[in-house]
Design a binder for these strands. Structure first.
Lengths: 143, 143
DNA sequence: TAATTATGCTTTTAAATAACAAGCATATTG
DNA sequence: CAATATGCTTGTTATTTAAAAGCATAATTA
């Protein structure tokens, strides 16, 4: 086992990231928040993945506990809550976009719009920042 | 639920990526392959995460089935096998690096070397390509 | 205002998965 | 030729996940 100098990571970043990324449902919830405008509990339920209510509830609680999302009462609807990404959550955008880029490259059935992939490859950071500020604006407007 | 034009993805890239990323053990195996020079079954077993042999065997088979890794007989040792990343597997490097970058930013206990994070942020693609070509060279040399 | 529906869960139970331990075939080493 | 290394497989038990149903509060409709 060859040793790289960068190998001796005990506060291992992949293990840290795996707490979020290493979970199917968390990834899909993040997708819905980032790219599908999901804000309410029902949005995740109706995203078409067939997530059970208990699974969704535990995942939302976990993401909240990790500081990835925040849960706010919906001012326009008493019993409802609005789920939004924190800065830490928005920070996951570049990684999500890389996953999308990879899938676009290797999945023959991909339905990533080619112009989206092109825009990403032309300037990754610019696209991430654009999406991020769009999301921040949207989160502010209807809060 | 606001609709983005980029939202209607049925060949969903996040779901596609989640087949690999959405699994804790796959992420750790990829880490070992990419950053710790792991090549043999025993390297993964001894990586310190306490993975069981049955879990490791199923994950290696899955990664192979997905075309992420290849399994070759070790020419220098009859019963042994060498596991290496395919081009598709190496393509996951940028996403892995983004996860590392995110963890470095948000994990107060991170042990990512600061100079590694700096180098990444200075030129993400350059670092990914450097690591990728280093890995390809290493995979060629002792095959 | 009373009944109905919406919302965001919790609880129960069944099924799937993971962890642990042991075993095992082939290969190499002493 | 006996002992050890290697890469698994096969049980068995424990844990996690998923599906289904239920439930309290809030809003809507009649």
């Amino acid at each position: 086992m060859t040793k790289r100098t960068t190998a001796n990571w005990n506060g291992c970043p992949i293990r840290y990231g795996a707490a979020i990324f290493g979970d199917n449902w968390c990834l899909l919830i993040l997708r819905d928040l980032m790219f599908k405008g999901a804000r309410h509990y029902a949005d995740f339920i109706n995203a078409g993945e067939g997530i059970s209510t208990n699974i969704l509830a535990t995942r939302l609680a976990k993401l909240q506990a990790e500081g990835i999302i925040e849960k706010h009462p919906d001012p326009s609807h008493g019993k409802r809550y609005i789920y939004i990404l924190t800065d830490k959550g928005l920070g996951l955008l570049p990684a999500m976009l890389e996953i999308i880029d990879w899938s676009e490259t290797w999945d023959s059935e991909t339905e990533v719009p080619p112009e989206f992939a092109d825009e990403f490859r032309r300037d990754r950071l610019a696209l991430a920042q654009k999406i991020s500020s769009d999301l921040k604006a949207a989160q502010r407007i209807d809060d």
